[in-house]
Design a protein around this nucleic acid. Structure first.
Length: 424
RNA sequence: GUGGGCGUAGCCGAGAGGUCUAAGGCACCUGGUUGUGGCCCAGGAGAUCGAGGGUUCGAAUCCCUCCGUCCACCCCA
């Protein structure tokens, strides 16, 4: 345990960051468009705890995955319960689906959430130990049509934000009927090349053979080039599902690229997997991704229930909005700054401010004891549209001096007319 | 978990063993007479030079450890 002497100065924990007012416009825009798009598709809001029984995630993601093995924030609480911070969003939602008997609702149940996700990773550009995801889950429908729907939703979201140049990578990783045979074929192909591949690939050979296909080492790529591909090993049902999905996407005019090497990091995926990748190079090549998870609900103790969905990271979206110089709607600035010119007028100032706010005018009052000059300087710094000045003269005449900060023009306005003069 | 770059006030940034009780700029606060912003001028506040240890008569400047940060790998949003 750390002692209590503490650091000289506190900072945000490694891999976390403060979102500051300078980014307010980005965050509120992305959040708003995310909710709007999800609701437009008929998805309903859900929010689950950020921590859960650790076993939910360990079982959900899969024991051997990176998430379960080295990235999960796990702890025991004072009651000795083993808990974990949510490393991804789908398992929570499936748990909630089961816990609240959502099988009895019209299927599929369409849900969305915006919530923080935690992974103990080494921080890097666009990668944090805490990040925020918009996630969408459609539970209870196994058709390719609903896969196309969630992809359409995500694509529409990016369009609404003004992100451009994203490419959609698509693959089918089969299901428990056909994947084992494929993995077998892949392993047997690689078993003849074990001495030629890199150390990482030797790990992959053991742990996650499909990853062998997208190794960046040149010598490994040469070997991967001739490796069997999942697409040639899909069973009839999976092949048909994948073909339908492609047809649906084409019908929607959503461009995609079949990427036989696309794999995802969670065990529960089957059939459809996809990722949206930004045009800029860099190691963080995914802004959003997801897929189908037909076995997950059953794994969590429910009846066999199909599901599909995605997660997309706000931090990476905002990174790309900035890279692409996308203009986001500004958060409105201060409309009226109420300054007092004497001590006696201070209370008149706060009363005026309250009236303005009640009429939905964004209003800030000048600080007590500051000179009028200082208050106006402050108003200028806040880029207020108007300064409303109240002093003894105004008090005596029941009026307010209204100064337009852009051009410095000012006039006396009867106290009762202030609101209409500031466009409230 | 592995490898590399970096770490001086809120931000940018001089400074490379003694002249540093650390320059400058931005931002912040106060004032430039009597109730008025944005320009200008003057002043003010703000730094245990990331932390700890070491070398030295002497360290922001050299060495070690740790921490943080950035970049890459791994993996992912």
């Amino acid at each position: 345990m750390p002692d209590d002497s503490g650091p000289a100065r506190f900072q945000a924990p490694r891999g976390t960051k403060d979102v500051l007012p300078e980014d307010e416009a980005y965050w509120s825009f992305v959040r708003r468009m995310g909710e709007h798009t999800a609701q437009l598709f008929g998805y309903r809001f859900i929010e689950t705890p950020m921590f859960e029984d650790a076993r939910l995630f360990l079982r959900g993601a899969g024991e051997g995955t990176d998430i379960a093995e080295k990235e999960i924030y796990i702890f025991e609480d004072r009651g000795n319960d083993k808990l974990a911070l949510r490393p991804e969003g789908t398992a929570n939602v499936c748990r909630a689906y089961l816990e609240h008997g959502m099988q009895t609702l019209p299927q599929p149940v369409r849900l969305f959430y915006v919530s923080p996700v935690f992974r103990y990773d080494r921080p890097q550009a666009g990668r944090f130990r805490q990040h925020t995801q918009l996630g969408v889950e459609a539970i209870g429908d196994g058709s390719a049509l609903i896969d196309a729907e969630v992809i359409d939703l995500l694509s529409s979201f990016y369009d609404a934000l003004g992100l451009s140049g994203l490419s959609l990578q698509l693959n089918s990783i089969g299901d428990p009927n056909c994947r084992p045979a494929y993995i077998e074929a892949l392993r047997s192909y690689y078993s003849n090349h074990l001495s030629e591949i890199c150390d990482d690939c030797k790990m992959r050979y053991e742990k996650n053979p499909m990853r062998l296909l997208d190794c960046k080492e040149e010598r490994c790529q040469a070997i991967a080039a001739d490796a069997p591909l999942i697409n040639d090993h899909l069973c009839a049902a999976c092949g048909e599902h994948f073909a339908s999905l492609q047809s649906h996407l084409s019908a929607l005019d959503i461009g995609f690229e079949v990427s036989p090497r696309l794999v995802r990091g969670l065990d529960y995926y089957n059939r459809t997997v996809f990722e949206f990748q930004p045009p800029e190079e860099g190691s963080q090549s995914t802004v959003g991704g997801g897929g189908r998870y037909d076995g997950l609900i059953e794994l969590l103790g429910g009846k066999p229930t199909p599901g599909t969905g995605f997660g997309t990271g706000f931090e990476r979206i905002i990174l790309n909005l900035k890279r692409q110089n996308v203009d986001v709607p500004e958060v409105g600035g201060v409309q009226v700054y109420v300054a007092h010119a004497s001590e006696a007028s201070q209370e008149a100032a706060i009363k005026l401010a309250r009236e303005l706010r009640q009429a939905d005018v964004k209003t800030v009052v000048g600080g007590s004891g500051r000179s009028l000059k200082a208050q106006l300087r402050h108003a200028g710094g806040l880029e207020a549209t108007y300064a409303a000045i109240i002093g003894d003269r105004e008090l005596a005449n029941d009026e307010v001096t209204l100064r337009s900060m852009a051009d410095g023009e000012q006039r006396q306005v009867p106290r009762s007319d202030v609101l209409q003069n500031v466009g409230g």
